[in-house]
Design a protein around this nucleic acid. Structure first.
Lengths: 183, 183
DNA sequence: AATTTAAGCGAACGTTCGTTAGTAAAAAAA
DNA sequence: TTTTTTTACTAACGAACGTTCGCTTAAATT
């Protein structure tokens, strides 16, 4: 419930009383369940980080062709993004509101995740499947930001399922826009 | 100055006194120059929207091959994103804090911009230069989110110039990851 | 049935918020 | 130089913030 509000109005834009009201409670009553407002944010952010990482790890460690790994990684990422949409938005946009120590922890997890993702591209390059002249860290960042953006506009009742979005993304990311790539 | 603070801590996370202090003023003194806090946000957001739109329009209307248009559009977008980094971040993340009327106006501008960008891809498809089986609105969204993400991590002293980032992006977006696209 | 535990209420706390108003200092115009 | 006009300061405003506390009610345990 806090996740939805944080994702829609931001952490600072959501008051304890807003959250309590959404739960049909009085402001103060929340403090029977939490110690501080930041605990709510921390819980959401941590849960999202965990979901992202635990979804990607087995894929990176598996033995499959690079393109197939990429396919699965994108699908896994978009699964988290669409199934835990609020948490994903909060994870991406509101981690700045955390205390310095926790903010640092989130950044470390995010970097670890980006590193895992990068491995897929690097491995594909070594295997000769992906082009050697690509800047892997840069392209990884492009890919992850594009995928995270889905958390902002995705609607469960929309015309595209998460799987369709994943398929369309990988198709474009792998083969590009050009009909004739020799151009 | 307000732009920097809004981009770093968010609109609600930045108080009038924060902005005044950064300007070596007392809190109340700001109100000799502005009518309300929201004016500051509105000014920044409007400026960014204007910069994006006025950069893209002449490119879309020009007579050039689709791939060249895309190249220039990406370069123009990244020019705004890197030269007015704070405004770009605020434009992308803080427009929710505006009053309903202004929020709607921003959304309309953003939609118009996205529509212009989409035209480039659609035109490329009609010309047979871009693949016909791509979901143009979807890919447009991917492209724009990836490019907007640059506003978050770009640092002027970093290893890559805006032009290099643009070139790397278009190279990937156009030709994809695969070394042999027949895969 | 009595007793402990948990959940929620409602008022209040100290602080910070955006904003206003009166006044003094500085700059510009006359 | 006097007179405006601008700029900033200080103090205060009411409202909203996160949080605490004593009390009541409901649930669970004995």
């Amino acid at each position: 419930m806090a996740g939805r509000l944080f994702s829609r109005r931001g952490y600072y834009g959501t008051s304890i009383r807003d959250i309590a009201t959404a739960l049909r409670l009085q402001g103060g009553s929340l403090y029977a369940h939490i110690a501080a407002k930041e605990e709510l944010l921390w819980e959401i952010v941590g849960e999202a980080a965990q979901a992202f990482l635990s979804g990607l790890e087995p894929i990176v460690r598996s033995e499959q062709p690079p393109l197939e790994k990429l396919r699965q990684a994108v699908a896994a990422h978009l699964r988290v993004v669409t199934e835990r949409q609020d948490a994903a938005v909060v994870f991406n946009h509101e981690w700045r509101a955390l205390s310095p120590k926790r903010r640092q922890a989130v950044l470390a997890l995010r970097d670890a995740y980006e590193g895992l993702f990068r491995e897929i591209l690097a491995e594909g390059q070594r295997a000769g499947v992906f082009r050697a002249d690509l800047d892997v860290p840069l392209v990884t960042r492009f890919i992850l930001t594009a995928l995270n953006g889905v958390a902002v506009w995705y609607r469960p009742k929309g015309p595209l399922s998460p799987e369709q979005i994943a398929a369309a993304f990988v198709d474009w990311a792998a083969r590009g826009l050009l009909a004739d790539p020799k151009e």
